[in-house]
Design a protein around this nucleic acid. Sequence first.
DNA 1: TATATTTATGTAATCGATTACGCAATTTAT
DNA 2: ATAAATTGCGTAATCGATTACATAAATATA
Lengths: 349, 349
Amino acid sequence: MSKKTTIYDIAKKLDITAATVSRALNNNPKISEATRELVLKTAAKMNYKQNRLALALQSGKSNNVGVIVPRVDSNFFGAIIRGVEEELNPHGYHVIICQTHEDENRENENIDTLLNAQVDGILISTTSNKITEPFNRVLKKNTPLVFFDRRKTMNGVSSVTINDFEGGYKATKHLIEQGCTRIAHFSGNRSIEIFQERYLGYKQALIDSGIEFNEDYVIETKSNREAGSNAVKLLLELNPPPEAIFSSGDFAALGAIEELRLRNINIPEEFAVVGFSNEPFTKFMELSISSIDQSPLEMGKMAAKVFLEQVTNTDNIKMEKKVILEPELIIRKSSLKTSLIKPNLKKVT
Amino acid sequence: MSKKTTIYDIAKKLDITAATVSRALNNNPKISEATRELVLKTAAKMNYKQNRLALALQSGKSNNVGVIVPRVDSNFFGAIIRGVEEELNPHGYHVIICQTHEDENRENENIDTLLNAQVDGILISTTSNKITEPFNRVLKKNTPLVFFDRRKTMNGVSSVTINDFEGGYKATKHLIEQGCTRIAHFSGNRSIEIFQERYLGYKQALIDSGIEFNEDYVIETKSNREAGSNAVKLLLELNPPPEAIFSSGDFAALGAIEELRLRNINIPEEFAVVGFSNEPFTKFMELSISSIDQSPLEMGKMAAKVFLEQVTNTDNIKMEKKVILEPELIIRKSSLKTSLIKPNLKKVT
DNA sequence: TATATTTATGTAATCGATTACGCAATTTAT
DNA sequence: ATAAATTGCGTAATCGATTACATAAATATA
């Protein structure tokens, strides 16, 4: 309960002023070596700790950045946050976490509270495409803003995403190389850019291989097991049914696989499946699931780096940087037809 | 780039003082209805937002709490953070995240930086048992401190943990009920309380069932697949080898299962396995893995609640609260011998 | 009408740090 | 020896809000 010591306490003790103490602690050159050492020693003895709040108020820099994600308890966002934290921590920044639960209103609230808390920047994976008032406030206030994974189209705002088109393309191309031609697609809500892009990548891969695009093979699903299972049921009623699925999400892919196995359909021989996100479980299954890795750790670090560039950017030039990470196809058992293994193919992990 | 408006700006515009503005905004009763409304209206028009930093400095309350975990990109800690955030957010608190990576020095650094940042409380899953100086500073400063999952033994400090002894006991008891008598245990580093408790629970369950405890059946492993696989190799060389494992971690359990299957040992008929933590993948495997659920979301919420009680606690009485959550055994295929299914047994999920 | 009470607002200190400016004291230059 | 330059430190403002205390005006009471 002992009151914390301030520079005034040190000043009083040494019979000097707080200004001198401050200068000594900050290695200001305009101070004699003797006083500096005396102050430093006394500060240590009195267990002085700088009050970052006071500093923040006076400097206008809180050294906090806000990170807004749909949720923190998913591997993907967890890894991103980890990346951000690891990158920013050495620079003296702290990370404040906010969750939106995919709710636009909560997202807006979060932005406003972060602004009021005077964060030095906001990194966000946004939930909608609309550019709402809070976002304009961010710009007006000149607070660095960086989108990651899910962006809005805003002028002068940087973003770090993966090439979702490429991800969809790679996954589909791989299925084609496995000999599949009737390839279905589980799409997320395509009003969200990432899902639209994965869908377009899927489509393009078909076209590039001379495979006709079949509208019926595209099903919009949530990313959970039940949705995947239901979608597969619909697909199997088609004539002819597909022989492969590229799913925009790993959980839907899992649901699909479970349903297929219930029906004794052999995977990957009779039916191949590729997911998206490379959730940890895809690797651990006995029938491991092929997936697209989004390198979330990298994405988090990169978002943090872009933010750092932005704050270091002393010229007041508006900087817009678009970093697009390459997705990596991880081929596993759910899509690798052993009869086709070629020496140059990636090994199964 | 427009300077943010402060109460002084509003005051100047209305030709009153900042004090009046402040009172009007805070619904202070000592203000006329007319001015209050005028101020409110003008504040809205000028797009005024309270600067929480200034408030924090003046009130000594930052409305930030620090949460320190080994890492954020694991389901367990992710879920805990989610719980904390959801519980604290409605009370106006923000969550600042720090990672220790199981490193005691980083833990200490994190504590100090959080203290300097003037957080209103610290929730931590600690990495070591030692009570280092930073922790004493927390107490001296009277900053609420709450341990979750992994605690230190400190007087007057609250904690939220699960009953790890009970978890170990339940898992082992279940294996015994499945007809196993030669039950091995993968233990974590037992200088950490939770692993020691799980170990003791395991041991007690054996004793209570009249099964002799066999030192050779206890192996200290890290929680990863390789460690689990290696540990199983050692066990299988014993004479007689065990016929079941209770593992302190899910990843080691997974590694063990993979190794057992390589050797064509039938699970669960010939060898049963129970893990700990209920990581998502344990549920998704075709051979789903039995595990102990620690209800991390609840744990996070509870830790947050204990913190809130602490700050609400107006009497300056030191409060020590120990919340111990009950672990839940989730029985899945890796340990449920179908020949033994009884109607009262929990259904496999 | 004179006094007491209430109401609404202003004054100024405070939270803890930084920093532009000014002024002695000291050192250097002429 | 005197002027000029440098050094080291104090003074006081600032960041943006809250609040104890003071005070003037309005209202109530005697």
